[in-house]
Amino acid sequence: MVIHLKIWRQKNQHTKGYLESYTLNEVDAEMSFLEMLDSLNLKLAKQGERPVEFDHDCREGICGQCGVMINGIAHGPLKNTSTCQLHMRSFKDGDTIYVEPFKAKAFPVIRDLKVDRSGLDEIIAAGGYISVNTGQAPEANSILVSHEESESAFDSAACIGCGACIATCKNASAALFTSAKISQLAKLPQGQKESSKRTVDMVNRMEELDFGHCTNTEACQVECPQDISVLNIAQMNYEYNKAKLKS
């Protein structure tokens, strides 16, 4: 099929970006979206032009490295699907597709569709862990975790750290990402000891970085490839208030 593309090109953080038009005449419906971009890049390289820089690695929806806005939607039109898992059969012959980077103040553009998401690592560094050194752990079955607790913790832990929730949010809030880690650990008995400190430290870090405030629009869950629930945000707020009351 024929696909028309309008792709964001930007040399670096300090220059202005613009949309460039391209047309691909031989797109196969079975191609993945990123393979479609590969074929564009092959064509550009052969014409002596700079290929479009975009992020990706595993191409199976788990590493969280890919992610672009496709027709204004983070990761594109399919629900619970990362950019790399999207296939061209979701589009029609002759479609025009807008491809832009995840945009947020906290995600400066590196080049073209690549952005800097290191803020997400900073939030985890502030407290997204259980403080246990190698060698300190007790026998695994001495910590019982009910099936429900474990499954529910897993649902939160499934976040792939892609940043789509932030790119989608009109406030560029990192609430869904941050709360997923806070509630995963708060749901487990091992994680409860540090829960107050963890929550306050992570929320403070989120605010120090350029992420905005959550105003409960719930757009984030809709775009999240892992369907991380906004209930995590409610749990984060609960943990936060509990911590503040204690202090």
């Binding site: 862990y129 752990a137 910590i143 499954e151 897993f154 091992q190």
Partner: peptide, 13 residues
Amino acid sequence: IDQAVAQGVPFGR
């Protein structure tokens, strides 16, 4: 397995 559980890895239960 001890270490991973202590870190909060949600294994099947």
